[in-house]
């Protein structure tokens, strides 16, 4: 999280309260450690549970693993990977997430470039509309879009789910990228234009390479958003096209008896975003800061 940076600036006296004086440095570390542990425990619990047999899970808490390491087994995972429905839904998640991310980034970048650098009538007014669209709750669109999809015969298809994600991803994409693109020095665009570069050339050769940090932020955001989505897929997908979240959700009502699917499945579902998060943390935080008003 390099952008946040408030790591012990020398001489900086943090704005603490009187408690600050009573607690010595060591005590602060203890508090931090405690909070950190509290924050980690839920995920740790899921992870360990996913490595235990269902019978062990119903008998004793996951923490007994620390005294009985023999309980650890990968059987639930091998069962999970042998489960055709789950594997299909994992594949569906990929089929939904990748196009939805690529399309949002591409179309959003095109529009953002227009908003930043092409002067057209009503541009500012339109941009205000885009900003307004950022907070529109998806609930307001579910029913009409469902009807639209039925008419187009794409209800229940992956295409439908993807398009819905693209639609609701675009306002934020345009907002984030437009602000970043507008900060690219104009001279760089003109230097290209002077040599006969078309808009498309400028977009490809100047905007995209220089806008890469913002594009990366957006891509990560959109990826996480779509990968983690439940509601959109719940409405617009069917049994064949449902992503992992929906497949797991249908097992939630019998939580106790389905724990052997749910725990490894949920961990599988969160492991990909987690890897993305830790690999691209910097961009993730940047995107968050730039677009912190998205709902």
């Amino acid at each position: 999280m390099s952008v946040t940076r408030p790591v012990a600036v020398p001489g900086r006296v943090p704005a603490g309260t009187r408690v600050a004086k009573r607690l010595t440095g060591g005590a602060w570390y203890l508090v931090v450690l405690l909070v950190g542990v509290i924050w980690l425990i839920p995920t740790l619990g899921l992870f360990i549970s996913s490595l235990r047999k269902a019978s062990d899970i119903s008998d004793s808490g996951w923490w007994t693993v620390f005294t009985h390491p023999a309980q650890i087994t990968f059987k639930d995972y091998s069962n999970l990977f042998a489960n055709k429905g789950i594997i299909q839904s994992l594949w569906n998640t990929v089929l939904i997430t990748v196009p939805a991310t690529v399309l949002v980034v591409f179309l959003g970048a095109l529009a953002a470039y227009a908003f930043a650098w092409i002067d057209f009538r009503g541009r500012d007014w339109l941009f205000v509309v885009v900003v307004g669209l950022m907070v529109v709750p998806i609930q307001v669109a579910l029913l009409p879009v469902a009807a639209l999809y039925r008419n187009l015969h794409i209800f229940g298809t992956i295409l439908g789910v993807v398009m819905f994600h693209v639609g609701f991803g675009l306002p934020f994409a345009i907002y984030l990228l437009r602000n970043f693109f507008a900060a690219i020095p104009r001279e760089l665009l003109e230097a290209t234009r002077m040599e006969g570069g078309s808009e498309w050339t400028i977009f490809r050769k100047v905007i995209v390479p220089l806008g890469l940090p913002a594009i990366a932020s957006l891509a990560i955001f959109q990826f996480l958003w779509v990968w983690n989505d439940l509601l959109v897929a719940l409405v617009f997908s069917n049994a064949k096209t449902q992503p992992l979240t929906v497949a797991l959700q249908s097992n939630m009502r019998q939580f106790g008896s389905n724990i052997d699917i749910l725990a490894p499945g949920a961990f599988l579902s969160l492991s990909v975003p987690l890897v993305v998060f830790f690999a691209f943390q910097r961009y993730f935080v940047q995107g968050l800061m730039a677009g912190s008003v998205k709902g």
Partner: peptide, 13 residues
């Protein structure tokens, strides 16, 4: 970074 669904399973536990 974690989906609400996974968070749901986590907290159900």
């Amino acid at each position: 970074a974690i989906s609400f669904l996974a968070a749901g399973v986590i907290f159900e536990l």
